[in-house]
Design a binder for these strands. Structure first.
Lengths: 219, 219
DNA sequence: ATTTTGTCTTTGATTAATCAAATACTCGTT
DNA sequence: AACGAGTATTTGATTAATCAAAGACAAAAT
């Protein structure tokens, strides 16, 4: 039975493994989890001893099959909870992330099963992130286009929002750039660093780093 | 921000204060919480330092106003969660207690508010236990009659089940002695220690200590 | 080849929660 | 008044998670 701290470490490693068995630097984890580097080293050693990951000193860490399975289960739980909070409890899009952060460590599989059934076995959460299946196949990283890389003038649909922070989600909501919305890039200027998009509700302008947080797919 | 351990200690003290400002012995708490007496003494001292309770050495503990408020909030959360799990997630009566035990420490007030609204502000949970109001008026202890003390032959209604352990609830379900059911004591024998009741579904026989766990009210 | 820089690991402490075992207290009996 | 039984408290350790600061290393710069 991993503690919630261990679950959070595993989740962070999974999310920062750009693909398959990528090695994640301990510094990256320290940053992501908001603890000092020394803490990461200590935790990582004890988790390696438990068989949840491999640690090559001064290189980084890689999840074992077991660690990956636990991490995927936590992510699945998180995203199902978010979906449930929005669809059933009618909570606000912007606040569910932190709620799910706490609940994902307390909710039993029994309850999760009921939630999954009531939601009709959804495959993506309100932010457009895929919900890993219980049999734990990979969670695919957004490898398609974003508003920062897509073709200009092409009609697109917003697929996924890669930043769950309340202020960013607030902006997304205000502009209407939510998953499912139709959008088209009108202008992208690498000198000024801005992207101007057109959507049903009007126009939205955002910076390139912000545009890179919005996955899109050509229609 | 009390830890979940502190919340559990407060809840246990509240539940074992037979009324108002009763003093609870540390030994009682050790028993209830499943830890050694020494642990209780240590925890109790630190909680007293935080102002959650008063501790008279070798006497017992008493909740302060603040400790009582926290304890009532936890109990309220617990019972609303149980009700939600049964009514909305259609979970089994018998398994919701332990689920709520974990969830009560992770669920935010924001989510609780939504749950309360969706349930229509209920005043008692599936076991018939009263749900303390948010303004924290007392939770009344079952001071009425039980199947062990009520008048024989009088028509009654089951009010509340005072033991949430799965085996006992299993028995309650099997016999139909659930809150709301109509029942009548046919025979109570203090020599053999048994109580025979009649209800719509037939007859149920149980021991006196068990009968004392079922609150009833005359119709 | 040496130095510098930036990242990682170690070391020594701290806090919360817990136990086992030793000690101390209080009450009811003799 | 002294004793013994039953509780309660102390004491000394342990585990998980964390920090600050010191030390070690590797890769880039000179």
């Amino acid at each position: 039975m991993p503690t919630s701290t261990v679950e959070n470490y595993l989740k962070a490693i999974l999310v920062h493994s750009s693909d398959k068995d990528a090695v994640v630097a301990t510094g990256t984890l320290a940053e992501a989890l908001g603890v000092t580097p020394g803490t990461i080293t200590t935790m990582v050693k004890s988790m390696a001893a438990r068989g949840l990951l491999e640690h090559q000193p001064r290189e980084g860490v890689r999840l074992t099959a077991e660690g990956r399975a636990v991490a995927l289960a936590v992510v699945r739980k998180h995203r199902l909870i978010e979906t449930f909070l929005v669809q059933v409890l009618k909570m606000d899009w912007k606040e569910v992330h932190e709620e799910a952060e706490a609940l994902e460590h307390a909710l039993s599989d029994r309850v999760l099963l009921r939630i999954d059934a009531i939601l009709g076995h959804p495959t993506s959460d309100p932010h457009g992130d895929p919900i890993p299946s219980p049999k734990a196949p990979a969670l695919d990283r957004g490898k398609g286009a974003t508003l920062a890389t897509c073709e200009v003038q092409r009609p697109l649909r917003v697929e996924r929002i890669l930043d769950q922070s309340p202020p960013f989600l607030e902006f997304i909501q205000r502009t209407g750039l939510k998953p499912g919305a139709r959008v088209r890039v009108r202008e992208r200027d690498h000198t000024s660093g801005i992207v101007r998009c057109e959507l049903k509700e009007g126009e939205a302008t955002l910076g390139l780093p912000e545009a890179a947080k919005i996955d899109v797919r050509p229609l």
